[in-house]
């Protein structure tokens, strides 16, 4: 069967991520096992027990997951919540 896919995102996000606000909100949503490292371009949030890495840079965020869609969607929603959007 063929999938019917919505081609528009639910939000348009802009600007930069406040890493402290992001970490605070992740904790609030039950993500507690994490390590934050500073990098030359921003930060890396590592979730060791989930084999997941979030690379935060100026103007971009990349979430690397091991296929756990429930976790990825939670990280996505918290990220969107923490970014300015319309």
């Amino acid at each position: 069967e063929e999938e019917i896919i919505n081609k528009h995102p639910k939000h348009y996000v802009y600007g930069n991520l406040d890493i402290e606000d992001f970490v605070r909100n992740l904790t609030k949503h039950g993500v507690t096992d994490m390590k934050v490292e500073d990098t030359p371009g921003g930060h890396i949030v590592h979730l060791p027990s989930e084999d997941t890495i979030i690379q935060v840079e100026e103007g971009s965020t990349h979430i690397f997951c091991e296929g756990n869609e429930t976790l990825r969607k939670k990280l996505r929603d918290v990220l969107i919540m923490c970014l300015p959007k319309f």
Binding site: Y12, V13, Y14, G59, H62, I63, G67
Partner: peptide, 16 residues
């Protein structure tokens, strides 16, 4: 976004 002098925040996901 351009007219408001804001730049888009690019989000990418990579899963295995």
């Amino acid at each position: 976004l351009k007219e408001c002098s804001a730049s888009e925040h690019e989000i990418r996901f990579t899963s295995t």
